[in-house]
Design a protein around this nucleic acid. Structure first.
Lengths: 250, 250
DNA sequence: CGAGCATTTGACACTAGTCAACGAAGGTGG
DNA sequence: CCACCTTCGTTGACTAGTGTCAAATGCTCG
């Protein structure tokens, strides 16, 4: 009998995966993907680098020299379209790992949204280390698995036709990321510009602006400031996201 | 000094990754992610299962018993929204691996689009095998990496505001997957229904229909039949995708 | 051959993109 | 510390393009 074969090609949003659930039970604290031992292994090859707000960390097409891990700050990952426009693929926060390479080049560009401090892990050294310590792979798989889910949620967000619904989902995505939400106040912090948000959710900046205004007007959220928002009526927000209020009658 | 730490949480479309480029050089034929030895390892635990068109392979929320690898046929992966509607996350073709689990459940449902034949890999046995043969992880990582890219392209597709542009990108995505395109005729085969396509690209079935008609009318594609399409003028198709022809004058 | 679903077409409403202009904010340099 | 300037954000008016609804047709499978 033939045995399973895989090609390097696949199609729209395939989603494989595996093991992670079981492995997670293997004595790891939630919120910590690496054990002390594993972290020690990595710290030996890591250096700390800093970028100012707006600085480019690497550019799509560059040779993939290193992988990065965010200590503090926010990074955006984007692709430049032939149009000249850019599409933001994702925002990266504290503890996120980034620097995906394919076919010997970075597949996206990365730029600092705020001032950032990063661990820089040279790919060569990292590969060597991982060959000697294969269990590190499990963490990479878990990370990839999570990122894949995020990308799928991103696509799901885009199916919402109402601008307010997209913004609602966007807010929930940001909120679900600890570190982006102030634990005390319950406020959601949006370090990126509205233009960046627009690029991420696939709308015009104007629509982003109007959506925030409308969500505030209907009492779903409260806007303290350009980048501090709080969800007031979560049920209402869910209703908006669900495209519930389709027709309003006079 | 502190060493790199990672949490299990991340945010919108983070994209990590690593090693793959270098490892690919390690004596593998393109199109074959697994070596003979590795395939032998997996075949021992695999069984062959079949599903008819329309049958559900697993449902979102089910305990993840097994991972699947497609021998023949096409599968769609979808999530059921509170609306009752379903959003198709991706289509899976020959040699694709699927069955992603998170937190002890399948994250999506899977259904046969055509009659399918699959390898069924029980998760328990697979985990055991991978613990003993860690190099199998590299293949999983490569696969995940690819799927992540696909999901990102899916999100990119959604940023196109013109229906025809989305369909054009969709066609190219399908085309780029060998197995979906007949090598001889150059025709693209679309095994899924237009309604499924609509669910994937985030439009109404009516819009899908109109887009195909318009693309054919302007000479970019030729439609032989509901599910056989051929790209005639690729440059024109690219122009449509690029949102180039914004204003047409009389 | 018939029932049910998928697809197509038409008519209409409505939302978001676009353009344009104003106002606000953050950063720079004096 | 202040003034300037560039970028970002907001608002209004207008239009184009889809979603939605409804109905006719075609296809598939039993």
């Amino acid at each position: 009998m033939a045995s399973p074969t895989r090609t390097s090609d696949d199609l729209p949003g395939g989603r494989p995966l595996i093991i992670v659930p079981t492995l997670w039970a293997a004595g790891r604290k939630p919120g910590e993907l690496l054990t002390e031992e594993e972290r020690a292994l990595l710290s030996a090859i890591a250096s700390v680098v800093r970028f100012r707000k707006g600085e480019t960390i690497y550019r799509q097409g560059d040779p993939p020299i290193a992988v990065f891990n965010i200590i503090t700050g926010v990074v955006k990952s984007y692709t430049s379209l032939p149009n000249g426009k850019e599409h933001i693929v994702g925002f990266l926060f504290q503890n996120d790992l980034f620097g995906l390479a394919e076919n010997g080049e970075y597949v996206n560009s990365a730029q600092a949204v705020t001032a950032v401090t990063l661990y820089r892990l040279p790919v060569r050294a990292l590969e060597a280390r991982m060959k000697r310590h294969p269990h590190l792979d499990f963490q990479i798989i878990a990370k990839l698995c999570h990122d894949l889910r995020q990308a799928q949620r991103h696509a799901l967000l885009m199916t919402k036709h109402r601008a307010a619904a997209r913004m609602g989902l966007f807010l929930e995505m940001i909120e679900s990321h600890h570190g982006a939400v102030e634990p005390s106040s319950g406020e959601i912090h949006l370090p990126m510009t509205h233009t960046d948000i627009a690029s991420y959710v696939g709308m015009s900046p104007e629509a982003v602006s109007r959506s925030f205004r409308d969500l505030a007007a209907c009492g779903a959220i409260a806007i303290r400031d350009r980048r501090h928002i709080r969800i007031i009526d979560r049920a209402l927000l869910e209703a908006v996201i669900a495209d519930a209020n389709r027709r309003k009658r006079p």
